[in-house]
Design a binder for these strands. Structure first.
Lengths: 136, 136
DNA sequence: CAGTATCCTAAGAGATACTG
DNA sequence: CAGTATCTCTTAGGATACTG
């Protein structure tokens, strides 16, 4: 376990494995990063930040159903991976603003596109489900 | 709980809620469909099917680290939502092929683009993490 | 080969209460 | 306001064994 990738024996990277070597490899770090980004709440938080920076409470209200714990956890993960910037204004009451980093600003539109795509295809999805369930 | 969305009291859908009514709404079915698609193993299975149809065992080997149970479960979900088609050739030994449906063929490239984007940004992600962890 | 069935552990996730 | 802490419950997920 914990092998990096490719053929460790030869020290060479088989060109044919170049594709498979990344996300498809269990040890690849990009798989973890991808999961952080595509996580249930992270994905919604990122798209929610697309139009403008938002405060914690705003995000909490906007991402309907998220608990404080999960939102906090997701935002911390996104901040750690460099997709979101957290800015604290020390004041009373405290004011914390979350905004997309340049990298996050590139990522979020892709996520939104994905969201939109799935939304647009929901009629098909529902038809497929009914069709599938009726056969079972 | 289980309220549909918008303002159930008036029976009208506030235009201002039109945006929030979708994925950001807890009850929206697109949120569930989105999660199915962006799930850890589902996402990898879909992109693995992008080049050509594959058999169960091929997918299992290709998506490194997935268990039979999880792959089976993910494929069933994708089939139910109409992204993947499952074709059984009754023979001995059995031969089952998974291929993208037309809808799946539209979806998968978007997922691949997301995967590629994250892969390409891994150096930035790693730098962000080190930077973040050193401050803590 | 292509799964299902079973068992078990770890992680996800909600609710509530509390703090700087 | 913006979280953290804690507790509990559910689901995800892995391992192994078995079947059409």
């Amino acid at each position: 376990m914990e092998r990096t990738q490719g053929s460790a024996e030869t020290g060479e990277v088989d060109p044919a494995e170049a594709f498979a070597a990344d996300v498809f490899s269990r040890a690849c770090t990009s798989r973890g990063a991808l999961e952080h980004v595509t996580g249930k709440w992270s994905l919604l938080a990122l798209t929610a930040l697309l139009d403008a920076p938002h405060r914690f409470g705003e995000l909490r209200r906007r991402v309907d159903g998220v608990s404080e714990k999960m939102l906090s956890q997701s935002l911390q993960g996104l901040e750690r991976d460099g997709w979101v910037h957290r800015e604290v204004r020390s004041s009373i009451p405290p004011h914390v603003e979350y905004r997309l980093t340049p990298a996050g600003a590139e990522l979020a539109p892709r996520l939104l596109a994905l969201v939109t795509f799935v939304e647009d295809h929901m009629p098909e999805v529902h038809r497929a489900r009914e069709d599938h369930d009726s056969r079972s």
